[in-house]
């Protein structure tokens, strides 16, 4: 190739300018490898490469043997790692070795036996020549002229209009990917009289079932035949805790939302919707493990730390005639993270 030359023929000619102490002296003189000068070293390198490839092949055979021979329920003890599934480990290690050794062999081959004279290749400016550029412009103009783009403005306008319009179709086609939100984000299954049952086993709870300091993870009891889906859980999950009534310091309008110190909040974080399940019974704080918003149960789950902006919505509760905990009413505001249509 015309623009390629060996770096070392070149270096002498360039270093002739080395009268100046800072001029480019050209590539440093080539240092030969042992394999270049000693046939024995080259032979040894060749053997090393062959051994690497050979070991890889052996490793692949070991892979096949592990695949066929090791049962799934065999575990081996490896110091530091503990007991681990033998087949997975054997398959992995043998495959890793087979692959790695092929690579190592190839690289070793390239490094020791393939030519290591650095080659110099010239760069060429990427920019096209002025004639080429002019040529393109001419062709473009001729094409546009021939098609009458400049003159036939009616065609131009209708074309632009129709292409613009047709790009709307994908947006339209995506419309049926889902229903409109309507009031879905604002409604839950909680309603007046609905019993609080434990998650996941559905036991109704009496006030006496919860001691002071107790927590219960709660879902609404559903009528026979209807079950809660994940879409329901994401709005209905509630956390119930019991404090000494005198520890509570709720806003006046929510004082009777509590039954004997038992208080219920939506468990879905008002920040990003994780389950705020982490209750510290001494400090009466609820913590969201996702982003560490901290809510103070005593004051009605007001935010005291972290990125959440709103308190957890409180569920008003009381007991029914049999003494079971029930919701006094549904949530009075949407649960979960904020959204544009949310009004408060």
């Amino acid at each position: 190739m015309s623009d390629t030359h060996s770096g070392h023929e070149n270096s002498g000619q360039q270093s002739s300018t080395a009268l100046s102490p800072l001029a480019d002296p050209g590539l440093p003189p080539h240092v030969y490898r042992r394999a270049d000068t000693e046939p024995r070293a080259a032979k040894k390198a060749e053997q090393q490469v062959a051994i690497l490839f050979g070991l890889s092949a052996a490793s692949t055979i070991a892979f096949i043997a592990s695949f066929v021979g090791i049962k799934k329920d065999v575990f081996v003890f490896v110091p530091l790692f503990g007991s681990t599934q033998a087949q997975q480990l054997a398959l992995g290690i043998t495959l890793a070795l087979s692959l790695f050794l092929i690579g190592a062999g190839a690289v070793h081959w390239a490094k020791t036996l393939m030519p290591d004279h650095e080659v110099i290749q010239d760069r060429h400016e990427l920019r096209s020549s002025d004639e080429d550029r002019q040529g393109v412009i001419d062709v473009f103009h001729e094409g546009a002229e021939a098609a009458g783009l400049g003159r036939r403005s009616l065609i131009k306008r209708t074309l632009l209009g129709s292409v613009g319009l047709v790009t709307l179709t994908p947006i339209l086609l995506l419309r049926d990917m889902g229903p409109l939100p309507r009031k879905q984000l604002e409604t839950t299954n909680w309603a007046a009289g609905r019993r609080l049952v434990t998650d996941p086993d559905g036991k109704p709870l009496k006030a006496s079932d919860l001691q002071v300091g107790a927590v219960a993870h709660i879902l609404p009891e559903m009528p026979e035949g209807s079950e809660l889906t994940l879409n329901d859980l994401v709005k209905d999950a509630v956390i119930v805790v019991r404090l000494r009534p005198e520890d509570l310091n709720l806003p006046a309008d929510r004082k009777d939302w509590v039954h004997e110190g038992i208080i219920a909040f939506s468990k879905i974080c008002s920040h990003m919707g994780c389950a705020v399940g982490l209750y510290e019974q001494q400090t009466h704080h609820l913590l969201c493990p996702c982003h560490q918003s901290t809510f103070d149960v005593e004051t009605g789950a007001q935010v005291i730390f972290g990125p959440a902006a709103r308190p957890l919505p409180q569920l008003a509760i009381t007991v029914d005639s049999e003494g079971y905990l029930i919701a006094k009413q549904g949530f009075t505001q949407p649960v979960g993270p904020s959204f544009w249509e949310r009004s408060s």
Binding site: V212, V215, Y279, E280, Q282
Partner: peptide, 18 residues
């Protein structure tokens, strides 16, 4: 018993078997 920060999981909320 719910020691320290841990809340109480009484037998009637979480049964002994659970």
């Amino acid at each position: 018993t719910g020691p320290q920060s841990m809340p109480v999981f009484g037998d009637r909320a979480i049964s002994p078997q659970q």
